[in-house]
Design a binder for these strands. Structure first.
Length: 195
DNA sequence: CAGCAGATTGACT
DNA sequence: GTCAATCTGCTGC
């Protein structure tokens, strides 16, 4: 299995659901504020742009916030939810197609002390879409960041997630999206298999 | 331009 | 179990 930074071609594939599934077990690395933190991606959700009611880009809508989703694959889309939480997405597919993968949970690998300091909590939790970004130091200011640069990258470190360990299910927190909320676009696995 | 609801989290009744 | 925190963007006056 090839290792190192994922190439642009990984993100540019037309099947955003496949990209979401393949991101499981990959390592999200940030080099922000002079500190390096790394964590294994354990949960993702696919958002199908214009045809997905749960997506910010549903109906081909463009706003200052989501315009980066229409850009080149392999860039970060970070946005603020409820005015407080930074959610990290990866832009996929072709330029002009607003598909993206939301990273909902990670498993810490490196920089545990830095994550604890950033979160200012005794116990480190990265099990939610808003908490993992705080632990890794990702802010809305990083939206549009190229994942093939140095600040934020996703690498393959040879971690293999058995197909049978991958759990597929409906996305969370998007009940308002009607039938689209039932689509099996959520993928995750139990990080305990990494030990 | 005021009001509201949302890919959420953590602290408190 | 309930609720506040607080930003973006849509709707309606």
């Amino acid at each position: 299995m090839p290792r190192g930074k994922l190439p642009r071609s990984f993100y540019a594939r037309p099947d955003v659901v496949a990209v979401a599934r393949d991101l499981l077990g990959k390592v999200l690395v940030t080099r922000i504020g002079g500190a390096t933190t790394a964590a294994v991606i354990t949960e993702t959700e696919a958002y199908m742009g214009a045809v997905d009611k749960a997506s910010h880009a549903y109906g081909g809508k463009v706003t200052p916030r989501n315009k980066v989703m229409y850009g080149e694959a392999g860039h970060a889309y970070v946005y603020l939810c409820y005015g407080i939480h930074h959610l990290f997405n990866v832009v996929t597919n072709a330029h002009g197609v607003a598909h993206a993968v939301l990273v909902r949970a990670v498993h810490p690998l490196e920089g545990l002390d830095v994550m604890l300091k950033r979160r200012n909590m005794k116990k480190l939790t990265t099990g939610g879409p808003g908490t993992l970004t705080q632990a890794l130091g990702i802010l809305t200011a990083h939206t549009g960041t190229d994942l093939l640069g140095d600040l934020i990258t996703i690498e393959d470190r040879g971690i293999a997630v058995p197909r049978k360990a991958i759990i597929t299910g409906p996305r969370i927190g998007v009940d308002y999206a009607g039938e689209d909320a039932l689509l099996p676009y959520r993928f995750h696995f139990d990080p305990s298999i990494l030990k």
